[in-house]
Simulated assay, not measured.
Amino acid sequence: MTSHSADNSAHISDNTLPGPGGTLLGKAALVTGGSRGIGAATALRLAREGADVAVTYVDGKEAAEDVVRAVRALGRRAVALRADAADADEAAGAVTAAVRSLGRLDVLVNNAGIGVLGPLDALTVSDVDRVLAVNVRGVFLASRAAAAHMREGGRIITLGTCMTQRVPGPGGTLYTMSKAALVGLTKALARELGGRGITANIVHPGPIDTGMNPADGPHAPAQAAMTAVGRFGTADEVAATIAHLAGAAYVTGAEFAVDGGHAA
């Protein structure tokens, strides 16, 4: 049985991102699990678009502080907040802390997540409880807390997985179930919050080159072969879609695959 997290990567890089677009000037964003991987790339991309950014972490304090320094180097405010999405109080409390630090909240990116992969009969009740606590309950609580602070123009963007659209093999039952729940949550949030001008969307990454699932890893060739383009994606490519949704007013309740054609 293996475990992986959605916020893992080997390093921070913003050299493939376009110059500042200013589409999020004056906005404040919270990226959960923002110390590495997709989370770090998203924090940097939002900062380049003009947003001040808070990121959460559990164990990677140094990595989170690296992200904060990189965001500040772009001329934006930034803060790193320790918060475990598995803890109900901390999941919601991270939103309050971000608002306290940045003065407002306009964009929530629910990126923090874990994956426990393995045969169905090897999964324990504790595995189920922790995965659902982080991937479902934590996202629900953070989204609810964020909605209480957001004004018109608020954006809730959640990270799903390509496995909600195509499960290529055994071993992903628990992880896929938890991420599939987020599709329903996203659509319901879109309906509940649309009248206030707040949107909710979900992004489904495919195989993405991160520290825990590197493009040169032992399982990479098989994963790349499942895509139409025959390669892993980058965290920056996922972040670009998230940044687009952070600025889009007439897109809500939608699913976006950034998976290289994994579901094609």
Results as ranks from 00 to 15, higher is better:
1 M>S: 14
1 M>P: 14
2 T>Q: 15
4 H>I: 13
6 A>M: 13
8 N>A: 14
9 S>W: 05
10 A>R: 14
12 I>F: 04
15 N>R: 14
17 L>H: 03
22 G>K: 12
23 T>F: 12
25 L>K: 11
26 G>D: 07
26 G>R: 10
29 A>K: 05
33 G>C: 03
34 G>A: 09
35 S>K: 04
36 R>I: 04
39 G>S: 11
40 A>G: 14
44 L>N: 02
44 L>G: 12
46 L>H: 00
50 G>N: 01
53 V>N: 09
54 A>I: 05
58 V>E: 03
60 G>F: 02
62 E>F: 02
63 A>I: 00
64 A>G: 05
66 D>T: 01
67 V>L: 03
68 V>I: 03
68 V>S: 01
69 R>S: 10
69 R>P: 00
73 A>F: 12
73 A>R: 14
76 R>V: 08
78 A>N: 00
81 L>D: 09
81 L>P: 03
82 R>A: 07
83 A>F: 07
87 D>W: 06
89 D>I: 08
90 E>G: 10
94 A>Y: 01
94 A>L: 12
94 A>E: 02
95 V>C: 04
98 A>D: 01
99 V>M: 09
100 R>P: 02
100 R>V: 05
101 S>P: 07
105 L>P: 02
106 D>C: 08
106 D>N: 09
108 L>T: 04
109 V>G: 00
111 N>Y: 00
111 N>F: 00
114 I>L: 09
115 G>Y: 02
117 L>I: 13
123 L>A: 12
125 V>Q: 05
126 S>V: 12
128 V>I: 15
128 V>S: 13
129 D>R: 15
130 R>Y: 08
130 R>N: 10
131 V>T: 15
132 L>W: 14
133 A>I: 07
135 N>C: 12
135 N>D: 14
137 R>F: 03
141 L>C: 08
143 S>N: 08
148 A>C: 11
149 H>L: 02
152 E>S: 15
153 G>S: 03
155 R>E: 01
157 I>L: 12
158 T>D: 02
161 T>G: 06
161 T>V: 07
161 T>E: 03
164 T>E: 12
165 Q>G: 15
165 Q>D: 11
167 V>M: 07
167 V>W: 08
168 P>G: 10
172 G>P: 11
174 L>Y: 00
174 L>D: 08
175 Y>H: 09
175 Y>E: 09
181 A>C: 11
185 L>D: 12
185 L>A: 13
185 L>P: 12
193 L>E: 14
196 R>D: 12
196 R>T: 07
198 I>P: 14
201 N>M: 06
205 P>H: 14
206 G>N: 04
206 G>I: 08
207 P>L: 03
209 D>A: 10
211 G>R: 02
212 M>Q: 15
213 N>C: 13
215 A>K: 09
216 D>S: 10
216 D>N: 10
219 H>M: 05
220 A>H: 11
220 A>P: 06
222 A>D: 02
224 A>P: 06
225 A>K: 11
226 M>A: 07
226 M>S: 09
227 T>E: 00
230 G>F: 01
233 G>H: 02
235 A>C: 13
235 A>D: 00
236 D>H: 01
238 V>W: 06
240 A>C: 08
242 I>H: 01
248 A>H: 07
250 Y>F: 15
252 T>W: 11
255 E>Q: 15
258 V>Q: 06
258 V>P: 13
259 D>R: 01
261 G>E: 04
262 H>S: 06
262 H>I: 08
263 A>G: 08
263 A>D: 06
264 A>K: 08
